[in-house]
Every structure is written in structure tokens, then in C-alpha cells.
Simulated assay, not measured.
Amino acid sequence: MAVTIKDVAKLANVAPSTVSRVIANNPRISEQTKKRVREAMETLGYHPNFNARSLAIKSTKAIGLVMPSSVDKVFQNPFFPEVIRGISTMAHEREFAIYMSTGQNEQEIYDGVERMIHGGRVDGVLLLYSRIDDKIMTLLQEKKFPFSVIGKPYQHSEHISHVDNDNFRAGKDVTEYLIKLGHKQIAFICGSLDLVVTIDRVLGYKKALEDANIPYQDEYVVQEEFLNDGGMAGFKKLMTLPAPPTALIVKDDLLSFSIMGMIDKMGLSIPEDISLISFNNLMLSEFTRPPLTSVDIDIFKLGYYAAECLLDQLDSPDQEVKQVIVPHTLIKRQTCHRI
């Protein structure tokens, strides 16, 4: 015979309604009582029927994750598994499941989010990116559906829950670091200018040059998409300029690894011939030859706090909008050289 809530209540010496509240993680139940009830559940091998509970409380206990592109492309970039690790850690703590978008292009991803909302599959949505004129963000705002964003929204950011680094400051910091090493010909291989993170970092780069009275040159800024092989073409284009850069800022470590290989094939040395600095500080960055100087943006915390913002919003819909800035740190290794 299946174990019931009444069996758990009897063993824990509480009312069945108390067991239900413990399952729902009601904050009004003391930690001592929660512990006793959960021990009784474990002893009896009781597992709550979450489908039935979801119908009763009109909650799916699930959140939807929306990717910037197709899943197969996203998971080639180590940023996303790490940010999802942060999200899933918070979701586990709050006993929420994760539902992931799986479209192969922007329209399919948009259609999938519509199904999430109208099909009642999730209680809220977490966008793992922020771009200009995003149809999905507009949809969520129009439907007044709970959501939060990893990245600063392009418009009305003060009214939208989001978690981000200070990307303007990060772009300025890395540029100033290279300037202090004596570099004036500093190129930036950046990401898509549809993404707010790219816009902010390029603005920081420009500001640092301006403050140092170094002229900004359009040809030194090369735009590359996520995981686009064009990063190599962009790098080659920079190196054939009449005055090639002495230092490179690269949008992420993954592209930097490829560029380091290309520099080696060209018979050049890092950092003697060209300095290199990057973003994300992936685990492999300290094991490259030479070890890569990179900005640690604390990817795990970006995901963890973004999920927390969303789940807090679901718990208290009337609470004030949250904006969380995760500090970044420049990790100085051996790919930058003083001129």
C-alpha cells in the first residue's frame, strides 16, 4: 500500500496540513518541524505528488531558461554550462525544476517561449542574455509574465529584474591596464553589437582611450558573433593593417584560445610580439601557454543570483525590482607585456 501524507503526519506527530506546508516549504513552519517531517518522509519512503500539488496551488514549480541561440551552439561555449550550474543550484535550493528552450533559430525560440507561457509550463522565465529590440523580452512585458535577465536590459532596466557585471567598467579596466603597459595600438575583437554586454564593453574601451588621449580607430574594433569562425578572419584582418595592434582585447576566453593558436602559426610570440587579454576566466585559462590574462566575471554567481531574483519575484510579486551587480576581477597572468 502506498504511503500517504497521513502516515507521515502520524510518524512525525503533526497534522497532515503541516506535512503539506513542509512539502511546499512554507516559511511559517519552523526548521525543527520541517526537519522532523522530512525525516519521517525519508523513513517511510514518501515522495510527494508534485503534479497534484501544482494543480492545487496553481504553480508548476518550474522556471524556463531562454538561450541566445540554439542549444547545440550554446553548449559549445563553457560560459553557459557554468551559468546554468549557478541557476540550477538556486533552483534546487528552492525545489524548482528547470525547463529549457530548444529552438534552432530566433523564431523557434520565440515560439517555444510562447508555449511556455500559454501552456502554463513554467511559473517564470530567465533570459540568459540581453540584446537590443528583443521580441521575447517585449512579449514577457506585454503579458506581465514574471522574468529576470542575465545582462542589463537595453531599455527600462530600472523596471526589470536583472543580474550583470559592470561591463562598461570591465571594458575600461582592461583597456587602461594595457595603456599603463605602454600600448597605444589596442584592438578589440568583440561580440555581436546587438548584445548589450558588447555595447557596454566597447563604450568602456572607447572611454579609456579618450581619457588617455589615444585616438579611437574603427578598424581596430572587429565584431564577431558567438562561436563564429570569423574570429580568425577578423584577427588576420587586424594583423594586415598598416599599423597592426600591439595588444588585443578579445570578447571571451574561448575565442582567445583559437587566436593564441593562430598567433603561434604566424610565427609570433605572446606577449613579446602581441599582448592578449580576455573575459570569463575559464578554468583552462591558467593552463594555456602562456597562461591567459582574463577578467573573472564570476559566471556561477551571475546564474545563481539571476535565479534568486526570479524566484523571489514569484514568492513576492509586489516586491521591488532587483538589480544585482556581480563584481569582476582582472586576473593578471602572462599574456600581457610592457612595451
Rank of each mutant, 00 (worst) to 15 (best):
Q223K: 07
R289V: 11
V174A: 10
F80N: 14
C309Y: 00
N26R: 12
T240G: 03
S278T: 12
D134M: 10
E320H: 07
M283A: 15
N51F: 03
R38P: 04
P245T: 14
M1G: 13
D166S: 14
V22D: 02
V196L: 09
L181Y: 06
K135G: 04
R131A: 05
C190E: 07
A170R: 07
D318A: 10
E39P: 05
L126C: 10
T198P: 08
M232N: 01
L209G: 01
P271R: 15
T89I: 02
H92R: 14
K207Y: 03
I297C: 10
V202D: 04
T329Y: 04
I150G: 06
G171R: 04
I297S: 13
V295I: 11
K58M: 02
K237V: 09
C309W: 01
D218G: 05
D318I: 07
K301G: 00
H156V: 08
F50N: 03
A247Q: 10
K206Y: 04
K10G: 06
F257C: 05
D264H: 12
H159Q: 14
S17M: 09
R38F: 06
N26Y: 10
I270K: 15
F50G: 02
V250G: 02
E225Y: 01
Y99C: 13
V222K: 09
H92Q: 14
R94N: 09
I214R: 05
L203A: 15
E210F: 03
N228W: 00
K73G: 00
M41N: 11
M232H: 01
G182K: 12
R53G: 02
G45N: 06
A2F: 11
V295M: 13
G204S: 12
M239R: 11
E225T: 01
T33E: 02
H183A: 14
V3L: 12
K184R: 15
F79G: 12
G119W: 05
T4A: 08
E114I: 11
R121G: 07
V113N: 06
M100Q: 12
V37E: 02
F188Q: 03
M260Y: 01
K58R: 14
I297E: 11
S285C: 13
V22F: 05
R121C: 07
M232K: 00
A40Q: 11
K58Y: 01
Y46S: 13
V174E: 06
E158I: 03
A208V: 07
P153N: 11
Y304W: 06
S269D: 11
S30C: 12
K251L: 07
I214P: 06
L254K: 03
I297N: 14
K58L: 02
G45L: 06
V71T: 08
N49V: 05
T293L: 08
A15F: 00
L55F: 08
T18W: 04
Q141I: 09
